[in-house]
Design a protein around this nucleic acid. Sequence first.
DNA 1: AATCAATCACCCAATCTTAGGGATTTTTAA
DNA 2: TTAAAAATCCCTAAGATTGGGTGATTGATT
Lengths: 227, 227
Amino acid sequence: MIDLVPDNTLLHHLCMFEDQKMKNRIEIVEDNDVVRDGLQLLINSMSDHTVVGAYESCEMAIKNLDKDSPDIILMDLDLPGMSGIEGIQRIKKRYQDIHIIVITVHEDSEMVFEALCAGASGYITKNANHSRLLDAIDEVQSGGAPMSSKIARMVVSSFQKNQNSPLTSRETEVLELLAKGKSYSVIADELFIHKETVKSHIKNIYFKLHVNSKADALEIARKNKLI
Amino acid sequence: MIDLVPDNTLLHHLCMFEDQKMKNRIEIVEDNDVVRDGLQLLINSMSDHTVVGAYESCEMAIKNLDKDSPDIILMDLDLPGMSGIEGIQRIKKRYQDIHIIVITVHEDSEMVFEALCAGASGYITKNANHSRLLDAIDEVQSGGAPMSSKIARMVVSSFQKNQNSPLTSRETEVLELLAKGKSYSVIADELFIHKETVKSHIKNIYFKLHVNSKADALEIARKNKLI
DNA sequence: AATCAATCACCCAATCTTAGGGATTTTTAA
DNA sequence: TTAAAAATCCCTAAGATTGGGTGATTGATT
């Protein structure tokens, strides 16, 4: 191949400038050395991404955030010291524009929702192949929220109610208004029924859910996605 | 190529059986004739999918559900007569195992969340290319929840709190417990503070949110994702 | 030094909730 | 068609919750 571009200093600087200006700056937080190095190699192999920092703990990553100024962080959840969840919270609190993609083995709903609530923009499980991972970075960069398919289903399912609710639709309606903090009389007005009817419904709800207080009813209802 | 399989009737029947047994049965609900026919052609071009019904309204689709027994329904939201949202609700109520993928132009959060709450397993906007659409069908079939990237981001963002809350962290804590339906005294116990302190916090919350009732506070708080 | 957050305290009056006990009409399902 | 389930309304009474007002202390941050 013929080198069409002479290696002069000016051009070199321009290229460096391009590098720094255009490349997506990625930071990695992962305690397993092999995985971390693998990720780094993989990402650096892409022309438009560059790893600006790779650390084994959130503490280290946070310490270097100003220096590294990443656009995207790939974050494990099991980490020595500060957990990934807490790391996400802290980072998002100070640097709202940084996108964090969780890379983890955990598929349990608790972890998933904690991570998303903490501010993660994506959630990829570690069984994902390399191209999926690189896609995820691009997806985040272009305004998406990459998720492994199981995770996406969990997330979408979280919007959907339990179809096998023991409650009638009217009772569910009442419970939903109760969940909004409305009083019996307001609920009565909104449903165009008597306040005493609301009370009856609530009595039946408590009976069906085996509880005897509003807080318990709401807890059971939310846990079982009745509302 | 040598035809290793002689064309006998038994085998033909076996193949037909295979066809019916193995192919993913897709139903389409879309009022635009051109789009509907296009979708049908596209899907039938895949060896492992077959369109078992294509209708211009939910009413028609629902009428033929037993006959068609689709695995997956592609559903538009703007439809004459019954809306797509209501269609999803009705279909999911009776046939919980059918997966519904919304295919629409709408990217507004209201539509998205209504559709997901109603029971949609995926949400693809109409600017998606053909391969993305076919991928979506496979994704649903294998337990995923295909979403256009904007939609995925909206969904993920819905888990995240507003970072610019006017409330202090303590006030947020109190409001969250209030949202769970807990009484002042229970909140006080859980936060190890005096009941009167809880009342003070709540008064401050009401002041900051310009409301003067629990229901209004919760409404504002949820609308602004303070909790 | 000044501000803000969080904490605690007291008073009053109105409203709401809970827990019993009923009863009637409509809808739905067998 | 009949029986069951759901939705509706009613009563009493004690006790708890709530909203509004006022004020004070401590500690952290700026």
